[in-house]
């Protein structure tokens, strides 16, 4: 517990913590204002279902908290753990006889606490911004408790949390293996973006192959789930597809989310947890074997 408290102190005092959070808040706020001025109005006009009207507004919140948030937690997790190598402080810790496993687990627990706080605060900020955008552009956003609003809100938080943890664990493990916060953040982002590009390309190939074999038989796509939907970042997207707030059909915003069948929620959750555990174990094993020079 004292290790976790110490890590929370380090995080609280570190500028990167606030910088990452402010970036998330600024982008989130800007997107809500954009949604209110353009997308919100258009969607209200043509579909009668406003994007910044509850409960559909939760879809945007999901996108921002878990999509943008997922990318930012990769970066922050890498910075959170990798800094110990950059500043040489890991040497002090090991030389004092601290367990490498306990130390890293303490960091992981503290990171999980920070992510939970950030997720909750950002979600609440999204709700506030829904009202702000609605007020600015004259859109009635209705009550966040409308319909299944509250249940959707809680379900989104619960389902999205392991997704954020899994993505953080990837950045965490990469930084431990590479012994650098910058390298960890860069490689983590490349993995994040790279996998999204790869799955999009593979989805396009799969769709093209299906069309060349006779199309979808006149109906909506019924192919999948494909193997690449089980890759670490994509699997998190599958959970987001299943989040109640995504009933609007936005899904994860990805091509595979629109054209391929979703991975069943239970499988996606189990797979995400496996990735989370595996990434953490890899990080622990890597540190346990490392020579600190």
């Amino acid at each position: 517990m004292r290790l976790v408290r110490a890590e929370l102190l380090k995080a609280r005092r570190r500028a990167a913590t606030m910088v990452i959070f402010i970036v998330a808040v600024v982008i989130t706020g800007a997107i809500y204002l954009l949604a209110g001025s353009a997308l919100g109005g258009i969607s209200c006009q043509f579909t009668g279902d406003c994007l910044i009207e509850f409960p559909a507004a939760y879809a945007i919140a999901d996108q921002l908290v878990f999509g943008l948030g997922g990318l930012l937690v990769v970066v922050y997790a890498a910075a959170f753990v990798g800094a110990d190598w950059n500043w040489g402080v890991l040497r002090n810790v090991i030389a004092r006889g601290e367990s490498r496993v306990n130390y890293l687990l303490g960091k992981a627990v503290a990171l999980a606490i920070l992510i939970a706080i950030a997720e909750l605060v950002l979600f609440l900020f999204c709700i506030v911004m829904t009202y702000v955008a609605g007020a600015l552009y004259g859109i009635q956003v209705a009550s966040p408790l409308r319909g299944n609003g509250l249940e959707d809100f809680v379900a989104s938080l619960v389902l999205g949390y392991p997704v954020l943890l899994e993505r953080a664990a990837i950045g965490f493990a990469v930084a431990v293996i590479l012994r650098s916060q910058l390298a960890g953040a860069v490689v983590g982002v490349v993995l994040f973006v790279g996998e999204a590009i790869i799955t999009t390309v593979l989805t396009a190939f799969t769709l093209a192959g299906t069309l060349s074999r006779g199309g979808f038989g006149g109906g909506l796509p019924s192919i999948g789930p494909e193997w690449f939907q089980f890759l670490p970042i994509s699997l998190g997207g599958e959970i987001l597809n299943a989040a109640p707030g995504n009933a609007s059909g936005l899904g994860s915003g990805s091509l595979e989310g629109l054209f391929l069948q979703s991975v069943p929620l239970e499988q996606a959750l189990a797979g995400t947890l496996i990735y989370l555990v595996v990434a953490t174990v890899i990080a622990l094993a890597a540190l346990n074997r490392q020579e600190i020079v």
Binding site: A6, K10, R13, A15, W87, G88, V89, N92, A95
Partner: peptide
Amino acid sequence: LIETPSFYPYLSGRENLLVLGATGP
């Protein structure tokens, strides 16, 4: 004290000892 002294630059000296004191004995 091995090689150069290494600390979290953004923490105070006292806080550095506090977080270091949370490790080991």
